[in-house]
Amino acid sequence: MEIELSNIYYRDKLVDISYKFSKWRVTSIIGNSGSGKSLIGYVIMGLVKDYEGEVIVDGSTCYDKYDFFKNISYVFQKPWDHFICKTVYDEIAFSLRNFKYKEEKIDKQVRDALKMVGLDDNYFTRELNTLSSGEASRVAIATAIATNPKVFILDEPTIYIDVDMRNMLIELIKKLKDKYNKNVIIMSDDMDFVYAVSDNYILLDKGRIIKSGEIDEIKRQSDVLSSCSIYVSKFYDFINFVNEYKGVNLEDASNIDDIVQGVIARE
């Protein structure tokens, strides 16, 4: 499923947003707080109504909402906005029941989804309001995975999660893209996470798209990110520094070892 935004305006929060989310790619929407990242997700999901412009799905503006929602999963920034049911099991099974899956399949999907986010079967009967922020975030992601949609929209997925879950989420997103050919849209200002998972990026500032393209482009442009008040990854900042002052080209470096080897080779 391909989603395209065409000349979206929403009050003064989004100004002339046009972008086509490519198939089987992970696209990150980067921007500081209040730049309109979440709002783009709201527009796609129809959570805000009074916007101008068009959301085009598979080349058409007239698409069936029911089929659309069957093929897309949205995870809110605050996981509690997501929850409707009482227990973890019911919450994950909620969408599956609505999409009329058989009970045996629902059970399997729920177990698989929970396993993928690192929660065991003991969580089935846990009440949602007893979960910690990190656990709630995992359950929200599990609800998104369970329905096996074509597109995932994750709004600030790393905000409540711990390091283990963060690494797990990185692996999960990579697996979703590479193994299952899913389309993932991430709204985040966590640049280390964005660099780890993304193929493409959109840089937003005050509701406008400043830049967009392949993620490798923005890795070397710390000044652009700084001008939009976004935290610059120290790792890539250091690579840029070495490149600028020592003349060592470390474009392919992905970890500290690569940097050290590159510098030794230069010496």
């Binding site: 999901m45 129809g46 959570l47 909402k65 029911y66 929602f69 069957k70 897309i72 949205y74 906005d81 997501h82 409707i84 909620f94 969408s95 599956l96 029941r97 609505n98 999409f99 609800t143 329905t147």
Partner: peptide, 16 residues
């Protein structure tokens, strides 16, 4: 409003 919107995009078909 919250529950209505969330349940809509989680498969509750209000059209049928």
């Amino acid at each position: 409003d919250r529950v209505h919107r969330v349940s809509e995009f989680r498969g509750v078909n209000f059209k049928k």
